[in-house]
């Protein structure tokens, strides 16, 4: 995919974000550790409620009310973010770390023109005269392939198609030339054709800027086409991580295997899609042992009592492959 040099732009260690609610403490992110290299695209997959979005929002320190990151470390290019003040964080958001939100239909403010919203972002990054900002806004719209940018800059979101709005949102995200871009299920609301156009656009931007991308999704197809590495999350923890090739060809964790089995393939004829029995455990009442154990087809007594350690494998492509399962490593043979 892209040229990969080895310097780490974002290092997250033992990140724990809890939601303090009336029902009790919800451990939405429960000890997440990962690195992101320059120019790398890291996929985070998992079902709703697995903590993918909360992990992303924790990086930005934009948590919903009741949410607090209780421990851990988020290090962006050598700077610890968790100890920064709110005004320092505001300077990082949009400039060094940016985000594309899920729904393009609703992530633009309906009462301002898209130009005004782009210019607002540009002005925060670097104050400049209106005319200059406007010119740059038009340039950004052109760079994300919005047709007729001189006219479109004065359009309101409701006058645009879903795909075009998504491009504008993408334009806003890259307007500050960030180092890290987080895309939180950016294609869920788009139809398939627009989706693939958008993927191409993201790839182009990535090639041009050597951007590092964290791609949150539950679409394995997108992971395969976009990402270098994948992290699988379940109930607030990473259960498996590795290169896309390894995860697809040699999944170790039963949950990852189940996820793979539920992806339809063209060469496997199936009457019904495979689905994982049961639902994830409620996050305010997690089991003591492995969180997937109650749904796991190969669970043992031990799985119910003790959380499994993370096992590392040496993968053929030398990208570390890790899985948190008692059976990881020999699960292939059973």
């Amino acid at each position: 995919m892209s040229s990969k040099d080895q310097d780490t732009v974002l290092a997250v260690k033992e990140l724990r974000t809890h939601l303090f609610t009336k029902m009790g403490v919800i451990k939405a992110v429960d000890g997440v550790t990962f690195d992101l290299k320059r120019g790398e695209t890291l996929g985070i997959v998992g079902e709703s409620g697995s903590g993918k979005s909360m992990t992303a929002m924790s990086l930005f320190r934009l948590l919903p009310s009741g949410g607090r990151t209780v421990s851990g470390s988020v290090n962006l290019e050598g700077e610890e973010l968790l100890t920064k003040s709110e005004s320092e964080m505001r300077r990082i958001r949009g400039r060094r770390m940016s985000m594309i939100l899920q729904d393009p239909q609703s992530s633009l403010d309906p009462v301002f023109t898209v130009g005004a919203q782009l210019m607002e972002a540009l002005r925060i990054q670097e104050p400049a005269p209106r005319k200059e900002l406007r010119k740059r806004a038009v340039d950004i719209l052109r760079s994300v392939n919005v047709a007729d940018p001189e006219r479109r800059v004065d359009s309101y979101p409701h006058q645009m198609s879903g795909g075009m709005k998504q491009r504008v949102v993408g334009g806003i995200a890259i307007s500050g030339q960030p180092t890290v871009l987080v895309a939180d299920e950016p294609t869920t609301a788009l139809d398939v054709t627009i989706q693939s156009q958008y993927m191409n656009l993201l790839n182009e931007i990535k090639e041009a800027t050597n951007l590092s991308i964290i791609f949150i999704t539950h679409d394995m197809g997108i992971v395969a086409s976009m990402c270098d590495r994948v992290m699988v999350m379940y109930s607030g923890r990473i259960v498996e991580s590795g290169s896309v090739r390894e995860i697809f060809n040699n999944p170790q964790h039963p949950y990852t295997k189940a996820l793979m089995a539920s992806v339809p393939t063209i060469d496997r004829k199936t009457e019904r899609l495979f689905s994982i029995e049961g639902t994830p455990p409620p996050l305010w009442d997690l089991p003591e042992g492995c969180r997937f154990a109650p749904r796991c087809p190969v669970a043992m007594d031990r799985c119910m009592e003790e959380y499994p350690p993370t096992v590392s494998f040496v993968a053929p492509d030398e990208v570390s492959h890790e899985a948190a399962c008692w059976l990881a490593g020999d699960i292939d043979h059973e």
């Binding site: 949009g94 939100l101 972002a121 925060i124 990054q125």
Partner: peptide
């Protein structure tokens, strides 16, 4: 949310 991400 987008405004916050933008740093407004």
């Amino acid at each position: 949310k987008l405004c916050r991400v933008k740093g407004v």
